[in-house]
């Protein structure tokens, strides 16, 4: 088997993951794109581990580590998604514009941006 087969597969999976991250509107679906990208990297690691006959099995070990990190990342990300859902009522990424550089609102009751800001930056509001 030529070495470039798994490498090409990994590249394409990575590009698909990038596409998913860029176009998906729902935050959970965006996370799925991230998972695809992580798996693409894992394929690369395992393929080179097999090719190089690594005595330390660095490729496979790193693939395991990445799986663990991905699990942690998903846990954190889902907590954030739920928080956003609680404060906004939706998790559409393209409607969360709290980072936009706008003129300060003239009235305190703002739209999404204001509430997201107050929700996500306010540990002082924890109880």
């Amino acid at each position: 088997m030529p070495l470039w087969w798994p490498l090409l597969l990994a590249s394409l999976l990575f590009a698909i993951g990038v596409y998913g991250v860029l176009v998906r509107r729902n935050a959970v679906l965006v996370l799925m794109g991230v998972e695809l990208m992580l798996n693409a990297v894992n394929i690369n690691l395992v393929a080179f581990d097999a090719h190089l006959r690594d005595v330390l099995h660095g490729g496979q070990t790193f693939a395991l580590f990445i799986i663990v990190i991905a699990a942690a990342e998903v846990g954190l990300a889902l907590a954030i998604v739920l928080l956003v859902f609680r404060s906004h009522g939706h998790i559409d990424v393209d409607r969360l514009r709290g980072l936009a550089d706008r003129d300060p609102p003239t009235e305190p009751s703002g739209g999404d941006g204001v509430t997201a800001h107050s929700a996500l930056t306010g540990p002082g509001r924890t109880r």
């Binding site: 991250v21 860029l22 965006v30 990424v93 969360l96 514009r97 980072l99 936009a100």
Partner: peptide
């Protein structure tokens, strides 16, 4: 700076 994270990405 429109706040669209995907655009930034």
């Amino acid at each position: 700076q429109n706040g669209n994270v995907q655009g930034y990405l």
